[in-house]
């Protein structure tokens, strides 16, 4: 196996690796957007004092609840006035007769269950109304599902294409040594004896390709993230967390590259040899 096989395997690994990193970042992005969507439960006017504490506990007891934060009407008015910059005086008189209700800001664990959770909240005695981004959550969930399916399909396709590419490449390499294999068979070499050097050669090629793909991914990913995060503040504009830092996953990426590379290299090499062993 030569430079051509190593290059083909490196490119194949890069295709799989780059796409996996892209899919992971999309997942992080969607999860981040998801976590920004809060449900607001407005309390009835007559719910005061200890009843508020009981209400908070009742909400927390629901299965799908992640965070519950009490949002008193006074705070709501303060925040509202702050938002109305330049017109503060118009709303100042509302301090004496605050029309806003007490509320809870709630985050749920699984947005796919938002409708059921909202229904449970509405059924409480203390609930006046519930404001929930159910439509948005539904769309987001559908989007996540679509992304997951596309990711899996593309990943499987890329791995399949990689195996075919490697198989063809190793076939060409093994073909040039078919005479050697043929002679070995005639002088009584066992199949395992013949395969062993091809196996280790494939393994070595896979490891070299894995190292190559790791280096390219490291520099490529880091450079791309620098451009996205520094120059246009992309992540701040859309108001979500930053992309996955490569340092957090570099050892996993390297290990996966080396493992997949060596396995595909070794298997591709051994499989390609088999055809010439039938003498």
């Amino acid at each position: 196996m030569g430079i051509a096989t190593t290059c083909v395997l490196t490119v194949s690994l890069l295709l799989v690796g780059v796409f996996s990193l892209f899919a992971m970042n999309v997942e992080i992005l969607l999860t981040s957007i998801e976590s920004k969507n809060e449900i607001v439960l407005f309390l009835k006017d007559d719910v005061v004092g200890d009843d508020i504490i009981s209400a908070e506990q009742a909400i927390k007891n629901l299965k799908n609840i992640a965070v519950v934060e009490y949002y008193p009407r006074e705070q709501a008015l303060e925040d509202y006035i702050k938002q109305m910059e330049g017109y503060e005086s118009v709303f100042e008189e509302l301090r004496d007769d605050n029309p806003l209700p007490n509320a809870f800001n709630i985050q749920i664990k699984d947005t796919s269950l938002i409708t059921e959770t909202v229904d449970q909240m509405v059924s409480f005695e203390f609930t006046d109304s519930v404001k929930a981004p159910t439509d948005f959550a539904t769309i987001l969930n559908k989007l996540k599902n679509v992304v997951s399916v596309i990711s899996i399909v593309l990943l499987v396709a890329l791995v399949a294409v990689s195996i075919i590419m490697i198989s063809n490449s190793t076939k060409a390499s093994v073909y040039t040594r078919r005479r050697e294999i043929n002679i070995m068979k005639y002088v009584g070499a066992t199949n395992s004896f013949i395969r062993t050097p091809f196996f280790f050669e494939g393994l070595f090629t896979g490891l070299v390709s894995g190292v190559g793909a790791s280096v390219i991914t490291y520099f490529g990913y880091t450079a791309l993230m620098d451009i996205i995060t520094n120059d246009i503040s992309f992540w701040e504009i859309i108001g979500v967390v930053e992309p996955l830092p490569f340092d957090n996953i570099k050892y996993i990426v390297f290990a996966v590259y080396l493992c997949i590379g060596s396995v595909i290299g070794a298997i591709g090499s051994v499989v390609s040899t088999s055809k010439h062993l039938k003498v």
């Binding site: 005479r179 043929n182 002679i183």
Partner: peptide, 18 residues
């Protein structure tokens, strides 16, 4: 088969040297 073939020597017209 490998063990059997070790009891035979073969010479070909095209030599088949590596």
């Amino acid at each position: 088969i490998p063990k059997f073939r070790r009891t035979i020597g073969v010479v070909f017209q095209d030599f088949r040297l590596i």
